[in-house]
C-alpha cells in the first residue's frame, strides 16, 4: 500500500470537507495510485475514518461519479471507473500542469525564487524529478 492511498481532511481549511475528499480522490486517480476498477471504501467506513458525516462522503462520491471518475456498483460498493477522465492523456497533462502551477504559485507567494525552488528540488532525497535518466 502506498502513501498516495491515504487521504485526510483538515477542518481548518476554507475548502469544505467534501471538496477536500473529491480533490484527493481525483488526484489519487490521476497519479495512478488508484487504478481503474479499484474498490473504494464504503461511505460509512470512509466517513468513520475521516471523522466526517456520512453525507459528506456520499456527496463527494456522487460528485466524482457525476464527473466520471467513479462508478457505483450498488451493494458491491464503489469503484474507480474503467475509463476515467484521466485516461485521456491531454486531460491528464492539463491536470498536472494546473497542479504544478498551483504548487509554484504557493511557493512564490511565500517568497521563494525560481532558483531556490529548482535547487531544493535538485537536492530532494526522493531524487530530482526533472533529471533525465
Amino acid at each position: 500500500m502506498g502513501e498516495a492511498d491515504v487521504i485526510a481532511v483538515d477542518h481548518d481549511l476554507e475548502t469544505p470537507p467534501y471538496q477536500q475528499i473529491v480533490d484527493q480522490i481525483r488526484a489519487a486517480i490521476e497519479r495512478g495510485s488508484l487504478a481503474p476498477g479499484a474498490a473504494l471504501p464504503t461511505v460509512r467506513q470512509l466517513a468513520g475514518d475521516l471523522g466526517v458525516a456520512p453525507n459528506t462522503v456520499a456527496r463527494a462520491y456522487a460528485d466524482l461519479q457525476a464527473e466520471g471518475w467513479l462508478q457505483s456498483e450498488g451493494r458491491r460498493g464503489t469503484r474507480v471507473a474503467e475509463k476515467t477522465p484521466a485516461a485521456d492523456r491531454r486531460a491528464r497533462v492539463h491536470a498536472l500542469e494546473e497542479a504544478v502551477a498551483q504548487f509554484l504559485a504557493v511557493l512564490r507567494h511565500r517568497g521563494y525564487t525560481n532558483d531556490e525552488i529548482a535547487l531544493v528540488l535538485a537536492r530532494h532525497p526522493q531524487g530530482n524529478p526533472f533529471k533525465r535518466r
Binding site: 500500500m1 467506513q45 475521516l50
Partner: peptide
Amino acid sequence: HGLRRAAVLAPR
C-alpha cells in the same frame, strides 16, 4: 474518538 482525520482509500 474525535481526532480521526486520515483514511486509506481501500475497503476494510
